[in-house]
């Protein structure tokens, strides 16, 4: 111990071993635990943040949920579970009667009912349609009323695909038992109507 350098060396070794021991047996496990727990805390903070953000979104949704439900109710109105082509035909016929005409719609549906072939309008919403052709002689007034009833009704969704109105010959009117004196009033009308309907949600899911 007479030489200071030996003394300092011994003290340095003691000091280092004390620190090393303290690190290995005391601080290292503590630090490991600290880091692990800190990670957990951070994860929980993120979860909390995520929850808050999710809750905000939920809250926003609840605020405007009514409008979504109203829209959906509007949609649901057009959903048909058991579609009957005859029923539509009868409907169109009855509608013709109202304007004073005997109308016999002809089923022109080209799209098969196989759901896999249905047009993929969206991923979750599938609509289908049935097409009917109507050939008749209409006066402009009749045509207007008929179309108004078909297109503007709130129960069934019809789209007019094609409409051809042409002047008619006297022969044509005669063969249909219409007075020739009213020739100018009549038009020979050929219209193709699409009856559009949506498939129920259960079916959508199945698809």
């Amino acid at each position: 111990m007479k030489k200071p350098i030996v003394f300092y060396f011994v003290i340095a070794i003691l000091f280092l071993s004390m620190n090393g021991g303290a690190y290995l047996f005391l601080f290292a496990p503590c630090l490991e635990q600290y880091v692990k727990q800190q990670d957990d805390i951070d994860a929980k903070k993120r979860q909390k943040k995520s929850i808050t953000s999710n809750q905000e979104e939920i809250h926003k949704y609840r605020m405007i949920e009514k409008s979504y439900l109203e829209n959906n109710a509007f949609y649901e109105k057009w959903v048909r579970k058991n579609f009957s082509s005859t029923e539509i035909k009868v409907y169109l016929h009855e509608l013709g009667k109202k304007v004073g005409l005997k109308i016999e719609p002809e089923d022109k549906t080209e799209v098969p009912e196989d759901p896999s072939l249905l047009p993929p309008t969206t991923e979750v919403v599938v609509h289908a349609f049935a097409t009917y052709e109507i050939n008749a002689f209409f006066t402009p007034e009749q045509l207007k009323n008929y179309l108004y009833s078909v297109v503007d009704n709130q129960e069934k969704l019809f789209l007019l695909r094609t409409l051809e109105a042409a002047a008619v010959s006297t022969d044509a009117l005669t063969s249909n038992n219409i007075e020739v004196s009213d020739k100018d009033k009549y038009m020979k009308v050929r219209m193709i109507l699409d009856y559009v309907y949506f498939l129920p949600a259960e079916e959508e899911k199945k698809e």
Binding site: Y61, Y68, L69, N71, N72, F74, Y75, W78, T121, T122, E123, V124, V125, H127, L147, V151, L157, F158, L159, L160, V196, F198, A201
Partner: peptide, 23 residues
């Protein structure tokens, strides 16, 4: 639900637009 509603709404909107396009 929201996606479903929106999809239904969009589909419906397009069709209703088509319905009124030329009338």
């Amino acid at each position: 639900e929201k996606a479903l509603y929106l999809a239904r709404y969009n589909a419906l909107k397009k069709i209703l637009h088509a319905k009124s396009r030329w009338l």
